[in-house]
Amino acid sequence: MFRNQYDSDVTVWSPQGRLHQVEYAMEAVKLGTATVGLKNRDFAVLVALSKPSSELSASQRKIIPIDDHLGISIAGITADARVISRYLRSECLSYKHSYGSTYPVSRLITNLGNKMQTTTQRYDRRPYGVGLLVGGYDEKGPHIYQVTPSATFYNCKANSIGSRSQSARTYLERNLDTFLNCSNDEIICHGISAIHGSLPTDEMQSRNESASQLNITIAIVGKNQPFKILSEKETQIYLTMASEKGAPPANQPYDDDESTSQAGPSTSGPRDPIVAVATEE
């Protein structure tokens, strides 16, 4: 990757009106393993792929419970996610203390967004290098929110972030219409199928393309269902169920949205390095 003079600080706008430091932080999300969030009428489900950093270590925790009605799944710098989760937890707790009820998901995320925004505007801070999928349930039903390092947040029908998540997103888009009326079992299986395409190619081969071997974490929250990370046993049941439900679209080559090799338009004057994401407007 090549440098230019406008990417040193978050406080510097490029001549094209972009914030390179923020865009680079968005790249950090793609370094984390993939995670998927999706929902049916009454439940939100998070599915995360985890990979131990070495043969001898356990894998990083990908799904962090926040409150009974809410949890997050992360991709990117785990340490940054801990700061965010501590904030979310204390917000939920103090809301519960004041009002005796659960923090509406949309409002919590709005406030988180405003907290994160300050890090994109000050010389002495850097953006959080982590993307979140928030799964929550409140009086307005189940929610999936995507939060990016640029402090933008999106209310989603379903979504996926992390490395090679494009094939998961393609899967989700293709099946989007069916999610609403899915049963819980079905929606979890959809989550597993979606994330299966995000497996590294070599892994897929070594696992013999069997979904029942995946190292994943599943969490669910919804009507009369406090946020729960499924036990290994339950996860195994769903993995088997998913692989029985038909082969996930595993072998199809994923569309590589993260390729940064496209040739940049050659314009005169200073040039921005080409990164995959544009600063969102």
Binding site: N114, Y154, N155, C156, A158, T279
Partner: peptide, 30 residues
């Protein structure tokens, strides 16, 4: 994949005051 109401750019500021932004949505929210 986004819900229709995602990343709205119109905000209510007071009972009778509204605000709309062009530019970065995160800045707008703030």
């Amino acid at each position: 994949l986004y819900e229709p109401d995602a990343a709205g750019r119109i905000f209510i500021v007071e009972k009778n005051i509204g605000m709309a932004v062009a530019g970065l949505v995160a800045d707008g929210n703030y």
